[in-house]
Simulated scan of single mutants.
Amino acid sequence: MSKKVKVIPCSGMGKVYGLMARETALKVVSELCPEEAETICLAYVVTGDAEAREKIEGFRCITLDGCPKLCAAKNVPLAGGIVAKELRMVDVAKEFKGAKPGDATSLTEEGWQMVDHIAEMVVGLVKEIGKEA
């Protein structure tokens, strides 16, 4: 079983912040720290998929939510995962006052800059959590 920190984004369909959460998770696990982090599809977690549950049960996770419903942050513990840190895209977006990140299907240049910023934050968290394990 992988000891990697789990980065779980919300599905956020139909919302730019959901798209940002997914893109951030993919950047972290594919480009920035693939040896230390991995992601699992939240839809599998929510529907009780046995393989997804096995991958997060008892593991420290970082959740990335696109809206105040906090689907990732709420469902990871229900599946046995440990939420070590939760980030809401809308909170981080406040640092980019006036930015137009895009829409539900595509990000603007400003949106990609926000994703890069959040991904760097997540990498720091992955490294911090990895040391604690």
Rank of each mutant, 00 (worst) to 15 (best):
K4N: 09
I8S: 00
P9Q: 00
P9D: 08
V16T: 11
Y17V: 09
R22G: 13
R22E: 11
E23H: 03
E23P: 05
E23Y: 08
A25Y: 00
V28N: 00
V28G: 03
V29E: 04
S30I: 07
S30P: 01
S30R: 14
E31Y: 10
L32F: 01
P34S: 07
P34Y: 02
A37T: 04
T39V: 04
T39A: 05
C41G: 08
A43C: 14
Y44S: 12
T47V: 11
G48K: 02
E51T: 15
F59M: 12
F59N: 11
I62N: 09
T63L: 03
G66Y: 02
G66N: 07
P68Q: 05
K69L: 15
A72P: 09
A79G: 10
G81E: 09
V83W: 05
R88N: 13
V90G: 10
V90M: 14
A93S: 14
K94M: 13
K97I: 00
G98L: 08
A99H: 10
K100C: 11
K100G: 08
P101H: 08
A104M: 14
S106M: 12
E109A: 15
E109R: 10
E110V: 02
E110F: 06
E110D: 13
G111V: 01
M114E: 07
D116R: 12
D116M: 03
D116A: 14
H117T: 10
E120R: 14
E120I: 00
E120N: 13
E120L: 11
V126C: 04
E132F: 06
E132Q: 15
